[in-house]
């Protein structure tokens, strides 16, 4: 299978992400093993699995925060190759939200949001600010625009981080455990924003343990373990009829409490 020429990829017009036979090693440790995944435009995919299963690593490969050693990856029609311009082109189309928000602490909320539009998309400042305010309204914190990240709660910071990504008008949004670092009462406000985003048709790849969110919005749920995609199914089938015993065990452990 790996001998097939790469141009015979699974890509169709609709596929915005095509991952084929992706392999990654950290030194001699094999983190990702033959990952195959294609994501259609507008599809919402939730990735779950135990820690160390490679799920974060996989989605971080999509915007090249992690490099991979073998396989191919096509994002929005652009093949990921070892080239700065190419990588920057892909990153402009892919937004990412991190577990620890990663807002820029020395800039105000508004400056955090306008940085990308002004410097990457070369938009004039007032246009960038108008876009920023639009998305701050959408995540329901326009009144915090001139504060610094350190003055906001975790939930507010994560909503700002989502707005910051949206300001770049990405085709695809990646979420890397967006609620794992939040206090329980703040998880909902972030999930609400994500649900809203999903309902608007954004293509989303989301690493999360929020099974309620998966049931509510996911088109497909993917279970990873040991660097492989173990199971992939619709939420209904995924939760009610897990095919592998590994997933059954995982579900029984996380749904117990």
């Amino acid at each position: 299978m790996s001998n097939e020429p790469l141009n015979k990829s699974l890509s169709t017009d609709e596929d915005v992400i095509v991952i084929k036979d992706l392999n990654k090693w950290y030194g001699s440790f094999h983190v990702l093993k033959d990952i195959n995944l294609s994501v259609k435009k507008g599809e919402r995919i939730v990735v779950c699995g135990p820690s160390g299963s490679g799920k974060s690593t996989m989605i971080r490969c999509i915007n090249r925060l992690e490099e991979f050693q073998r396989g191919s990856l096509i994002v929005n029609g652009v093949e990921m190759i070892e080239d700065v311009k190419n990588i920057e082109a892909i990153r402009r189309e892919v937004g990412m939200v991190f577990q620890h928000f990663n807002l820029f602490p020395h800039l105000t909320i508004l400056e955090n949001l306008t940085l990308g539009p002004i410097w990457v998309q070369k938009k004039p400042k007032d246009e960038a600010e108008a876009i920023a305010m639009k998305y701050l309204e959408r995540v329901k914190i326009p009144d915090q625009a001139n504060k610094f990240p350190g003055q906001l709660s975790g939930g507010q910071q994560q909503r700002v981080a989502i707005a910051r990504s949206l300001c770049m008008a990405p085709q695809i949004m990646l979420f890397d455990e967006p609620t794992s670092a939040l206090d329980p009462e703040m998880i909902k406000e972030v999930l609400d924003v994500m649900v809203e985003l999903a309902e608007e048709g954004m293509t989303m790849l989301c690493v999360t343990h929020e099974m309620g969110f998966a049931k509510k919005v996911a088109d497909r749920v993917i279970f990873m373990d040991g660097g492989e995609i173990v199971e992939e199914n619709t939420p209904h089938e995924f939760f009610d009829n897990p095919e592998t015993d590994r997933l059954q065990l995982f579900l029984s452990q996380i749904l117990q409490h």
């Binding site: 090249r64 925060l65 990153r91 937004g95 990412m96 820029f104």
Partner: peptide, 8 residues
């Protein structure tokens, strides 16, 4: 990573 992911 945040700066990279914005495409800076």
């Amino acid at each position: 990573e945040a700066a990279d992911s914005l495409g800076l």
